[in-house]
């Protein structure tokens, strides 16, 4: 009887406990180190995140409006706030469209109905580049590609925008 009761001897008990506690301590030390080693993998890329741009969906109309927001951008030397902007409107199918305002010609900022001569078009003040409302460039003006389109989503009635992609890739 007493033999059976003593299946775990004092020596064994101490061994188990010490291994257990030692292992726990080792893990406590190793896990943060491991985490640090793979940290870059775990970190979500800030650029890929969609950002709340502070525009409620119900305020989006059929008329393109300009929204400006800021994102944190880290490059090799600086971490900085970078201003971004977009032209946002609802198209005929009631889908939200967010176009990058950067002209595909040489990178000026286009504006909706920026020229009185061309209503219902995006107009680039630098070299007269023009785009239709859907961002398609108008042949005969300098730009050779349509305006980039932002990734977008709606959450809790607010508009979130991500990266701008050339049309066709998005």
């Amino acid at each position: 009887m007493s033999e059976k009761k003593q299946q775990v001897s004092r020596r064994q008990f101490l061994n188990y406990t010490l291994t257990g506690v030692g292992g726990f301590m080792a893990a406590g030390m190793l896990v943060p180190m491991l985490r640090m080693a793979v940290d870059p993998v775990l970190q979500e890329s800030a650029a890929g995140d969609l950002v709340n741009v502070g525009l409620a969906v119900e305020d989006i109309t059929n008329e393109p409006q300009r929204v400006d927001w800021k994102i944190d951008q880290v490059d090799a030397w600086y971490e900085s706030k970078v201003g971004k902007s977009a032209w946002v409107y609802k198209n005929d199918n009631d889908e939200i469209v967010a176009l990058s305002p950067i002209c595909k010609h040489l990178g000026c900022v286009v504006s909706w109905e920026g020229s009185e001569q061309f209503p219902d078009q995006f107009y680039c003040p630098c070299h007269g580049g023009r785009y239709h409302k859907d961002g398609q460039n108008i042949p005969g003006t300098p730009p050779t590609a349509p305006l980039d389109v932002y990734e977008s989503k709606v959450e809790n009635g607010m508009l979130y925008l991500g990266m701008a992609h050339p049309r066709g890739e998005a």
């Binding site: 201003g83 002209c103 040489l106 990178g107 000026c108 900022v109 630098c126």
Partner: peptide, 8 residues
């Protein structure tokens, strides 16, 4: 410069 970068 940002607004007019293509010509400036």
């Amino acid at each position: 410069e940002k607004e007019l970068s293509g010509r400036v």
